[in-house]
Design a protein around this nucleic acid. Structure first.
Lengths: 116, 116
DNA sequence: CGCTTGTATTCCTTGACGCGCATATAACGC
DNA sequence: GCGTTATATGCGCGTCAAGGAATACAAGCG
């Protein structure tokens, strides 16, 4: 499973906050420092973890480094989540549909787990 | 943000393996021990973390305790992922524009101001 | 050239986490 | 009741990651 750094990167709430910040728009390190209330070295270290996990990309603009989200790992997470979505569909069948249709694998039909 | 235990629970690869096992079918602790190769106390502790994160629920069957996935946190994860999925779709749409023109930071050569 | 701004990295300490061991608790069969 | 099976918990130890202070590196500006 090569997405281990992805999970460990998202395990930290500060890093999830950074990712949520970058979801709105790309930001420089200074903006992230001010928005998250962390120290600058801590922020840089968290950004390094996010960078090595492939979650963010950096663009150099003069002295500043502007970080932006990389959408690719989102697809990885979504792929991991896909099998569980089937379970959740089965459970919430009475609530109707949800707003997401991924034309992906053919829907595994009503598979009853026969208890041993 | 009450889904912090959810992320920390899924941060561990052993716990993700347990969750993947329970995706196939509910299993007792002994089955999980044998399948994951972990010791029984470690497995019980991981199951406790998963239980407190709401990821699994336990059904008592004689002396055995059969663990099964709870589909609710999957919906939580999916809800967290939803905004990023929008970004992912958007980036597929505007592929080849200004986002793509910077592959990465081209490694600048170790250049010093070297007066002759 | 210094100087200032912006960011990354290193050292160190502390706290949390995981594992193995032993033990406690609970339910079944006799 | 007793013993056995099945699971949970407490303890000690090693490891790893996060945070802070100081510092190093890089880029613009005077």
């Amino acid at each position: 499973m090569s997405d281990a750094p992805l999970w460990t990167a998202l395990a930290d709430p500060h890093r999830r906050a950074i990712v949520a910040l970058l979801l709105e728009r790309p930001r420089s390190v200074g903006e992230i420092v001010e928005a998250c209330g962390l120290s600058q070295p801590s922020t840089s270290k968290h950004l390094k973890v996010l960078r090595e996990a492939g979650l963010v990309r950096v663009r150099q603009d003069a002295q500043r480094r502007v970080y932006a989200l990389d959408p690719a790992p989102i697809a990885t997470l979504d792929a991991w989540l896909a099998p569980y979505r089937a379970l959740w569909n089965k459970s919430l069948d009475t609530l109707g549909r949800r707003l997401d249709e991924t034309p992906d694998a053919p829907e595994p039909p009503h598979r009853r787990t026969d208890p041993p």
